Computed example of a mutant assay.
Amino acid sequence: MAPKFVLIALVSVLVLFVGAIPTKVSAVTAVTAPTPTYSAISIVGEIFCKSCKLPGYVDYLHASPVNGVLVRVSCFDKNWNYISKHANSIPGGFFYLTWPDAASFNPKLCRAYIDWSPMSFCSVPIYGPGPYGGVELYLVAEKNVTGGTEGTYSPGVIYLGAPKGAVCPNS
């Protein structure tokens, strides 16, 4: 008789637990961090020639800085308007520009391009793989400025190479 009583007790306990299991399971949605809002946007980068050893050659990059390269940063804003800004690289290969509309700037919809190089022997942009060409921008710094926070973005170093048949000058 005892085993029958134990079996009935176990079934009763099981029914209690099964009845307590919820029939609907709610899914937990992932929370994404909001995109930071900046009052000012600056874009900085460097242009180097991979083909030749020119003045300013940097051993660890195996490249030389290029002065006078026309750099274009093009973006779609939040309303899908296409906006482009241009800057020329200065000695050392650096370029700097400010973005006109910080409120609608979305770095995920931006790319940096080389439009022109003053050196015919080092004028072909070397972009990474991707269907859209150009170089993506990434956040490198944030700083407090008058009226808010400035976000500084960069494509990093953009390299130029030699076109087919080009020869480097004596360096």
Rank of each mutant, 00 (worst) to 15 (best):
Met1Thr: 05
Pro3Gly: 11
Lys4Ser: 11
Phe5His: 09
Leu7Asp: 11
Leu7Ala: 12
Leu10Gln: 04
Val13Thr: 13
Leu14Ala: 15
Val15Leu: 13
Leu16Ala: 14
Val18His: 03
Ala20Pro: 02
Ala20Phe: 09
Lys24Leu: 14
Lys24Met: 08
Val25Ser: 08
Ser26Leu: 13
Ala27Asn: 12
Ala27Thr: 13
Ala27Gln: 15
Val28Asn: 13
Val28Ala: 10
Thr29Ile: 10
Ala33Asp: 08
Pro34Gly: 13
Pro36Glu: 02
Tyr38Trp: 14
Tyr38Ala: 00
Ser39Met: 00
Ile41His: 11
Ser42Pro: 07
Ser42Tyr: 07
Gly45Tyr: 03
Gly45Arg: 07
Leu54Lys: 02
Leu54Arg: 10
Leu54Ser: 07
Tyr57Ala: 04
Val58Ser: 05
Asp59Trp: 15
Tyr60His: 15
Leu61Ser: 05
His62Pro: 00
Ser64Trp: 07
Leu70Lys: 15
Val71Arg: 00
Arg72Cys: 03
Arg72Ser: 08
Arg72Met: 03
Ser74Ile: 04
Phe76His: 04
Phe76Pro: 00
Lys78Asp: 01
Lys78Met: 13
Asn79Cys: 13
Trp80Met: 15
Asn81Val: 13
Tyr82Lys: 06
Ile83Trp: 06
Ile83Ala: 06
Asn88Cys: 01
Ser89His: 06
Ser89Val: 01
Ser89Glu: 01
Pro91Tyr: 14
Gly93Met: 01
Phe94Ile: 15
Tyr96Glu: 09
Leu97Arg: 01
Leu97Tyr: 10
Thr98Cys: 03
Trp99Ser: 00
Trp99Val: 00
Trp99His: 05
Pro100Lys: 11
Ala102Trp: 12
Ala103Leu: 14
Ser104His: 12
Pro107Asn: 01
Ala112Asp: 02
Ala112Cys: 10
Ala112Leu: 12
Tyr113Ser: 09
Asp115Lys: 10
Asp115Phe: 04
Trp116His: 09
Phe121Ser: 06
Ser123Tyr: 04
Pro125Ile: 10
Pro131Ile: 15
Gly133Lys: 06
Gly133Val: 08
Gly134Cys: 03
Val135Thr: 05
Val135Leu: 06
Glu136Tyr: 02
Leu137Ile: 13
Leu137Trp: 08
Tyr138Ala: 07
Tyr138Leu: 04
Tyr138Arg: 10
Leu139Asp: 07
Leu139Lys: 14
Val140Phe: 01
Asn144Arg: 07
Thr146Cys: 01
Thr146Leu: 01
Gly148Cys: 09
Glu150Pro: 07
Tyr153Glu: 02
Pro155Asn: 05
Tyr159Ile: 13
Leu160Glu: 08
Ala162His: 04
Lys164Met: 08
Ala166Gly: 12
Ala166Ser: 15
Val167Pro: 03
Val167Trp: 01
Val167Ala: 10
Pro169Gly: 08
Pro169Ala: 01
Asn170Cys: 04
Ser171Met: 02
